[in-house]
Design a protein around this nucleic acid. Structure first.
Length: 576
DNA sequence: GCCGTTTTCGGCCCGACTGTTTTCAGTCG
């Protein structure tokens, strides 16, 4: 959480420097560092200056500022900048279509520093008096102001994927000769996304009109021969780019991003005497294209193995590709079991047998039934007696079903003091125990971390469920020290869950990668509360791919015997 | 403000669309 605070301060510094018209490369340095810090897995406030400077993009000045923040809780440079402008000025900068130059003009020439003042200036015609401002610009700003009031901005990846799928289906029907692909953050599998990026390749004059006249278009933001943007109902922005078929690979590469990955790749191209853009890879000396049609050719020409889209985040994938050390990523087909599901015994919608058959239909060969424990009274959680009885029924039903093996488990609450909600002798009777937090989310970091570490220390805890408790776009993760949890899990042989509920996706990609790097096993589970829930497995697998995981890193890719043998309770027993 | 296979100075990714500009600046991705 402290990293995020530092990242936010650097971002604000960058914004303010931009309004001041400072050196753009200095501004970029702050933005790059902000991005790096936001995704760092180690707690930067605990790093020495030398450790900080070892991070790419952090030099003498920025390392000193991070140290300053760690020691004093603020950065003087940031405060000085804020004193030069009203803090509300940053709201203006974040409006669609308003950039730093416009903000500087608004503030410097008209004294406008809040959204309300800006709206008033538009309405009474004062905006048009400013240089470079006209009627259109005024309308644009009024629309952006209105949208800001209703638009949430980002969306869950699966929601965006669904909207993108419908749009693609429509476009393909309109222009069957043209190739359409989803690119951008959606192709990389990022957990939330701000817009839908579509690439079209081929020649067909109907592409752009078809796109802008799609029935779900709320309004058109921009329209040209090769690039258009629209706002869809529901708040999705969709962008379409059209390039010739011979540039398909280069355009796929370019528009998939991420920005950080592309900057590194272009840098590499330049060093090797090439220019890389969305049309192809060109020799700098002759201008001749040496790649463009196929995406993998771009990477090959630059001396790299093909990098899967999920890894293209500028987090070491280029170096790994150069050394031929990219992992063979897990895929949905590798998953054999699901280790987290609920039934009508607690807050699920289906009975044991229905869930078992649905799991089998979804292609799984084993399923752990893990209903809630008694602390979750609202969900009719199981006490020791009911848990044992429920386990007996799960095993009984499992014994007469073909094609699916049932495991009797529990999702046991971790109480606020770190003890488990059910007695050890009850947990010992079960096949698998998932331990989760569903209460007292607001504990301070030290207490929350201690609570989680106590749970890991319980010999009957096999898996930590949704370990950070975040709800995407809704609730921040609770203040658990994830690196400490990872170290403890590694030492104890406890697995960490990637929960597939689309608003959880918890662990997130960077934490799951940290766990993998430390040798912690991962379990990918749907947390299904109804028979349709097993379809969510693919989203957890996407997170796992973004975390560089291969099938060997994930326990539930094993056969049921292999899975059970990998559980902490069984591993420990043999080594004790 | 960062960084270095030619560099401790002089670079730093590149192109499309819009609006107000009569030749281009601002914004976005």
């Amino acid at each position: 959480m402290e990293n995020l605070a530092i990242a936010r301060v650097f971002e604000e510094i960058a914004d303010l420097l931009e309004i001041k018209g400072e050196n753009p490369f200095k501004i970029r340095a702050y933005r790059n560092a902000s991005e790096t810090i936001a995704h760092a897995t180690e707690q930067l406030s605990r790093c020495t200056e030398a450790q900080l400077r070892a991070i790419s993009g952090i030099g003498k000045e920025l390392a000193a500022k991070i140290r300053e923040f760690a020691e004093t809780g603020e950065i003087r440079y940031h405060r000085d900048l804020l004193e030069q402008f009203p803090p509300t000025i940053l709201d203006l900068l974040h409006l669609q279509g308003v950039g730093p130059k416009t903000v500087a003009l608004l503030y410097g020439q008209a004294g406008i520093s809040t959204l309300d003042e800006l709206e008033a200036a538009c309405r009474d015609g004062r905006l048009r008096e400013l240089k470079g401002m006209g009627k259109k610009k005024e309308e644009l700003i009024l629309k952006a102001l209105a949208e800001r009031k209703q638009r949430t901005g980002r969306h869950l990846m699966p929601d965006a994927a669904e909207a993108a799928g419908l749009l693609l289906e429509y476009l393909h029907a309109q222009c069957p000769e043209v190739n359409f692909s989803v690119v951008g953050s959606l192709r990389r599998g990022v957990d939330t996304t701000g817009d839908i990026d579509i690439l079209a390749t081929g020649v067909d004059p109907r592409v752009m009109p078809a796109f802008t006249s799609y029935k779900l278009v709320d309004r058109i933001l921009g329209q040209g021969d090769t690039k258009s943007s629209v706002l869809l109902w529901g708040g999705f922005q969709a962008d379409l780019r059209l390039v010739p078929e011979q540039s398909r690979g280069a355009a796929l590469q370019y528009f998939t991003g991420s920005k950080a990955h592309n900057i590194l790749l272009r840098d590499r191209a330049n060093l090797r005497g090439f220019k890389l853009n969305e049309y192809g890879l060109f020799r700098l000396d002759t201008g001749v294209a040496t790649a463009g049609q196929r995406e993998e050719d771009i990477y090959e020409q630059l001396g790299l193995a093909s990098i899967p889209p999920e890894l293209r985040e500028g987090r070491g994938e280029i170096e790994a590709a150069e050394r031929g050390e990219l992992p063979g990523l897990i895929s949905l087909d590798d998953i054999r079991g699901d280790i987290h599901a609920h039934t009508t015994a607690t807050d699920g919608r289906e009975d044991i047998e229905t869930m078992a058959l649905a799991a089998r239909d979804a292609g799984l060969s084993y399923l752990a039934i893990t209903d809630h424990s008694k602390a979750l009274a609202m969900a009719n959680g199981l006490d020791e007696h009911r848990a044992i009885e429920h386990a007996r029924r799960v095993r009984e039903i499992g014994s007469r079903l073909d094609g699916i093996t049932l495991l009797a488990g529990i999702e046991c609450d971790i109480k606020p003091d770190g003890t488990m909600d059910l007695a050890d002798d009850c947990l010992a009777e079960l096949d698998v125990v998932v331990a989760s937090i569903h209460s007292a989310f607001n504990q301070e970091a030290a207490q929350m971390t201690d609570r989680v570490l106590r749970a890991v220390a319980n010999p009957y805890v096999d898996i930590m469920g949704h370990p950070t408790g975040r709800l995407l776009l809704k609730r921040e993760p609770y203040k658990v020290d994830v690196p400490a949890l990872v170290d403890a899990a590694a030492a104890a042989g406890v697995a960490l869950e990637i929960n597939c509920q689309v608003d959880r996706l918890d662990l997130c990609d960077t934490h799951a990668k940290l766990a993998r790097d430390k040798g912690v096993k991962i379990v990918i589970s749907t947390d299904s509360h109804a028979k349709g829930g097993f379809r969510l497995m693919k989203w957890g697998v996407t997170v796992a791919r973004r975390a560089w995981l291969s099938a060997e890193d994930v326990l539930n890719t094993r056969t049921v015997e292999g899975f059970k043998a990998g559980l902490r309770r069984n591993v420990k027993r043999s080594s004790d």
